[in-house]
Amino acid sequence: RTRTSFTAEQLYRLEMEFQRCQYVVGRERTELARQLNLSETQVKVWFQNRRTKQKK
């Protein structure tokens, strides 16, 4: 599997969503992935990694 390189715009949007809600599921995840031109899996994993980073 190749590592995803997020654009600055994608990271900004993901961070904004994370500040709003640390868990994104269902339709929200589908819509966010579509808007950012990413897969739902990429969005899901980004949120998982971001929550892990916050715990440290």
Rank of each mutant, 00 (worst) to 15 (best):
2 T>A: 08
2 T>P: 10
3 R>P: 15
3 R>H: 15
3 R>A: 12
3 R>E: 13
4 T>Y: 13
7 T>E: 07
7 T>C: 06
8 A>L: 09
8 A>V: 09
8 A>Q: 06
9 E>N: 02
9 E>V: 09
10 Q>F: 00
11 L>Y: 06
11 L>R: 03
13 R>H: 11
13 R>L: 11
13 R>T: 10
14 L>M: 05
14 L>C: 04
14 L>Y: 04
15 E>H: 00
15 E>L: 04
15 E>F: 04
15 E>Y: 01
16 M>T: 11
16 M>W: 06
16 M>L: 12
16 M>A: 12
17 E>T: 06
17 E>Q: 06
18 F>D: 03
19 Q>E: 12
19 Q>S: 11
19 Q>N: 10
20 R>P: 00
20 R>A: 08
21 C>V: 11
21 C>W: 03
21 C>D: 15
22 Q>F: 03
22 Q>Y: 03
24 V>K: 05
24 V>T: 11
26 G>F: 07
26 G>E: 07
26 G>S: 09
27 R>M: 14
28 E>H: 06
28 E>M: 04
30 T>P: 02
30 T>V: 11
32 L>H: 07
32 L>Q: 00
33 A>Q: 00
34 R>D: 08
34 R>A: 15
34 R>Q: 05
34 R>F: 02
35 Q>Y: 05
36 L>E: 00
36 L>I: 13
36 L>P: 02
36 L>V: 09
37 N>G: 12
37 N>S: 07
39 S>Q: 06
39 S>I: 00
39 S>D: 15
40 E>Q: 04
40 E>I: 03
42 Q>A: 13
43 V>K: 01
43 V>W: 01
44 K>T: 14
44 K>F: 04
44 K>R: 08
45 V>G: 09
45 V>Q: 11
45 V>S: 15
46 W>Q: 00
46 W>P: 03
46 W>H: 07
47 F>D: 02
47 F>N: 02
48 Q>S: 10
48 Q>M: 10
48 Q>Y: 06
48 Q>P: 00
48 Q>E: 08
49 N>K: 12
50 R>G: 01
50 R>I: 00
51 R>W: 07
51 R>F: 08
52 T>E: 14
52 T>Q: 09
53 K>I: 12
53 K>A: 13
53 K>P: 10
53 K>T: 15
53 K>W: 12
54 Q>K: 14
54 Q>A: 13
55 K>L: 14
55 K>H: 09
55 K>A: 14
55 K>C: 11
56 K>C: 14
56 K>T: 14
56 K>G: 15
56 K>Q: 09
